[in-house]
Amino acid sequence: MEKSLWIRCNNCGKILYKQDIIDNLYVCPACNFHYRLTAIQRLNYLFDKNSWKIIDEEIQPTDPLNFKDSKPYKQRIEESRNKTSLSEAVINVMGTIDGIPVIMSIMDFSFIGGSMGSVVGERITRAIERAGKEKKPLIILSCSGGARMQEGVLSLMQLAKTSAALSRLDELKVPYISVLCDPTTGGVTASFAMLGDINIAEPYALIGFAGPRVIEQTIKEKLPKNFQRAEFLLQHGLLDDVVPRKNLREYLIRALRLLLNQPK
């Protein structure tokens, strides 16, 4: 968003006072459109104040395939780091939500499209394993275009790795809530994002396996309205609920209390 005090909503076109959108967690007060948040913004409104700590930052990306398309992969990583001040497309956080200790992974789309390579896979796996070891509920906020092409088949194998870790967490009976944000597609949807004990999404989030453009090109017809949007998935039985951002913290607290058998 620009520096001026006023801003036009990309969705409904209304001119709005910028601070109103910010105060509303980047949701348009006029049309309820949910703008994308950074991982840090999500962390700040979900955790209890001063309760959290970012962990697993020692896991850092490299360039296993020596990949270079229009620019070298290493340069892409460097540019994303400077742009986002993140070290990769996911942060792991431990802290409390309404006093309940949790482990949370939060993805950030602005880091190479939130794509999952070796680091994202490893950090997510560590979050899952830590949740199991410390018996703390796991929450993952997904926001990703899918597996990272620049790490080739190693990225694909992160689907297997994270899902296998979740099977162990499942056996340990530690709750896992998956929150799908706009967009969650490809390999992230086809692994941990769809494996929550509870799967919920932000309103109008694009969620799917294949991207809508690929589907359109394959079937050569226009896609139905709202196709692959959160509400569409809810209607097709693929989500437990669609939860507006301003209710998400409350929803998580309620779900955690129920799953942990901890009434208020």
Partner: peptide, 16 residues
């Protein structure tokens, strides 16, 4: 990659 596949949860089927 098709409409029916997405409606019936392609990603979920794979993940599961």
């Amino acid at each position: 990659p098709g409409i029916g596949a997405e409606e019936r949860g392609q990603a979920e089927a794979i993940a599961y």
